[in-house]
Design a protein around this nucleic acid. Structure first.
Lengths: 209, 209
DNA sequence: TGGGATTTGTTCGTATGTATT
DNA sequence: GAATACATACGAACAAATCCC
């Protein structure tokens, strides 16, 4: 979500295990799960790498994501509790605060906004699928998009919440469609191949303890 | 899919490995994947068991499945190639032929019809999610439904295909909604706890070679 | 093209935790 | 309630495949 890693980056079991202070067995399990979620590519006898979705897979992922999030807003329109409303507004305020700061934080918050909505449907299945697609879309944008500019997105988030609170399902769906279309639209120009990464250094912030 | 196993059935790594002639490591990996798909419950230091979705989870799974399959028929209406049409008709013919025979076969075919439709959208993501939910719903029905009666379902499948071929998206969606509602409706009466199973014997047909 | 260094695939042993008599 | 049997969790080690110079 924060683009600490880039598609194609190598993920050797040993190095991961050393970084997170676990054995290869554990690192291997984690890689297996991530492969199941489409974030890691796992080919037999080959080193695991961060997934590099093809252009077709990218398009497909975005298309299904749009359909799924449409379901989310349809379920939520006019049904947000006061508490949920407050949570969403607090989140958007956080996004605004972060919008001037470091990019990884604002990218993460933008993704988490959608996750928050999915969570509020109360459907674990919907939540899981939206989360999975959200993560994959973040990965795709790091492959295909130009640098993130989050300013517009925050105001769109605000409008979506307003439509949900107003109970205008149709409008909320339209807004969400346009919002996600706009996000997908960023994935138009291929960025040049990324720099070499130092796995050990990059993952340092993510080690517990 | 064929209800060879029932929710709650124990799945010890050892027994599985012996049955399929693989080591515990491999059996363990398989259990991990199945847990990711929600078909197996994996609690720390405890024996794995076939998942027993709660009533709420069951309801949720069916609800999301209906929403997802609605997307499938919307994408397919008026867009089926002659070849796809033939494939679907052949499948339904197979369902009819099997409807008098052994139950496991017809249950499997009924589930696979929906999988076939999802596949024809050409969307790997949609296909995967519909498959996952289809398998889970089969599991749920084996927990909560009375014995399967597939006669009605086959004719409903036929009607859905007809609406798709006619290009009537709205009607196709309605038919699919009603069809899946009817399937979910079967999950109303709790069946009594199932008999004890002999894992070794039940899995015998599934061993390769 | 060849060969050494890496990295994965798999098995097995031990420790630890759980169920059952 | 304690002891025994059983199952899982984890890591070490070895073989085979791959990578890279």
């Amino acid at each position: 979500m924060e683009r600490a890693l880039t598609p194609g980056d190598r993920l050797p079991e040993d190095a991961l295990g050393e970084r997170f202070n676990v054995s290869r067995t554990i690192a291997r399990q984690a890689l297996g799960q991530l492969a199941g979620e489409g974030l890691v590519e796992l080919r037999r006898n080959r080193i695991a790498v961060v997934a590099s979705p093809s252009w077709e897979e990218a398009r497909d992922t975005f298309d299904v994501r749009i359909s799924l999030e449409r379901i989310v807003v349809q379920r939520l329109a006019g049904r947000l509790s006061a508490e949920q409303q407050a949570t969403l507004e607090a989140h958007i305020a956080g996004e605004e605060r972060a919008s001037g700061g470091p990019e990884p934080a604002s990218i993460r918050l933008a993704t988490e906004f959608h996750l928050l909505l999915a969570e509020m449907t109360g459907s674990p299945v919907l939540r899981r699928y939206v989360a999975e697609l959200g993560y994959r879309c973040a990965l795709i944008l790091s492959l295909y998009s130009r640098p993130h500019s989050s300013d517009c997105a925050v105001s769109e988030h605000r409008e979506i919440v307003a439509a949900l609170v107003a109970g205008n399902a149709g409008h909320a769906v339209t807004l969400m469609d346009h919002h996600l279309d706009a996000v997908a639209e960023r994935a138009r120009i291929l960025t040049e191949p990324q720099r070499e990464h130092d796995l050990i250094r990059l993952l340092a912030p993510y080690v517990d303890g």
